[in-house]
Amino acid sequence: MALRLLAQRSLARAAPSHRLFSTGAVVASSHGLNRLKEHYHNIVAEDLMVLTYDHTKVSPPTLKNADLEALLNNAISEKVEEPVVVAPKVEEVRKRKGGKPLKPIQPLKNGSNIPTLDKITVHAMVKDAIHQKNHILSAFMALQSITATKPEVIFAKTSVANWKLREGMPIGVKVTLRGKEMYQFLDKLVEIVLPRLKEWHGLPMTSGDGNGNIGIGFPPSALALFPEIEGSFDMYPKMTGFDVVFNTTANTNAEGRLLLSGFNVPFKGAKTQTKK
């Protein structure tokens, strides 16, 4: 018995069956410490694909390796017909009740058009800036510190006599966030700001603009909840309310809400799992 063991050992020493290190494919790395983006790609995307699946709207599979030569020969051999321009029939002209602007046609589903977050717009209109332009500075600084991006100043497009607003006056600030900054801002919003809002139970289940984009308005008090502002609250002469618009690539409100709830944005009336 002992002999056999010894023999095995010596065999193992002579010809190692495996190497101590592997030279295989690189380990799938992170996205550069972007927590929400990783969460989306690892968990949410697949679930969204299943949950938004519609069997009546499946796009045909694309050609993986198109035989270009055969396609070309086919195209050359066939007679090229002159396209005949025919006015569309009345039934074919799309219309919406009440003459409202048309909504975009929903594309067919496939694996590559799963709803995703496109951009977040943070916008603040400062009414006091009408009387005193200085007031816009505070909002500018606040937005810059919470989003880590330089905002752009918005000038009035039209004059409004009732508000004493004239065309060309600076009236607001806006930040458009994409990519890394967008996910970082959303993370801050979801983990720190939204849970500490007083008397707010979540977005309504009917929110959305009809095409899958969702917006929230925040009171001036919410600005102080951001960790960047909280520490130097007294250095801001004026707190402003602001609104945040989530632009998604979803096509319906339901899909947009589903995507945002995947990022832990609370929705009112959403079902919670009952404990068994």
């Binding site: 949410v44 979801v190 809400r257 995947g262 959403a270």
Partner: peptide, 19 residues
């Protein structure tokens, strides 16, 4: 039964984003 869909479907609130 498989094609039934709800317009009010959301991810559960208890879902925690991993850290």
């Amino acid at each position: 039964a498989a094609i039934v869909k709800s317009r009010h479907i959301t991810f559960p609130r208890e879902m925690k984003i991993p850290t």
